[in-house]
Design a protein around this nucleic acid. Sequence first.
DNA 1: ATGGTTGGTTACCAA
Length: 263
Amino acid sequence: MRLATWNINSVRLRMPIIEQFTASHAPDVLCLQETKAPDDKFPLEEIRALGYEHVLFRGMKSYNGVAVLSRLPLSDSGSRDWVGKEDCRHLAVSVDGKLELHNFYVPAGGDVPDREQNDKFAHKLDFVDEMTAWFSENRTAETPMVLVGDLNIAPSEFDVWSHKQLLKIVSHTPVEVEKLTAVQDGLGWVDAVRHKIAEPEKLYSWWSYRSRDWRAADKGRRLDHVWVTPPLAGAVKDVEILKDARGWEKPSDHVPVIVDFDL
DNA sequence: ATGGTTGGTTACCAA
């Protein structure tokens, strides 16, 4: 099974490169974030025409939104709201009855890394805390699960272009890293990408639009993740971060992260 | 320290 996660920053605008990606890399399951489309404007028929018969999505006007596109049967497995907001940041699905997949779009958190001064940063920290609590209360490490998405945190010094220059930049502050690590430690989640491409190799999945030459500057961050619970760690066969996609026509600022499983 | 770009919406907000 080939699984991919991709923050596409508007599903409607990105249909051409979604088609390009599905044609070139043929994921069996594709998790999207930032679809930015209310459910009645989600391009369901176009996606079905690409060969994805099973589609679950939760969207809203303007912001956020998540979707799972699949060639394998899907059923909802507890998609919910977080931190008391109905803002379409999570889908939980069972994939063909074989594993449970959680697709997250964690709040970006604004610019000021101080919960007292910035409500969006407080929301982000509370969201990640609630992830830790929910998984510890509702799931165990023995459950075969995959957690993917734009977690909006680059945890390691090898996940950013400059650890020193980003320590006070939202996405790489110590408090965010500590909270993301708490989620990971809760069920012993294994980072599937680092499982295959170990540190100190630098890995990024996002490059800002605000750069004249993103490729030359290469000031990236690894914000998009694929984690698995221990029962699935041995099933991870290969991983790829598709950096080329950042250079496609009308690109997202994020690129697909692909994991192949031998289930 | 600051500004840079993009998308959704339609006056700016979020990223």
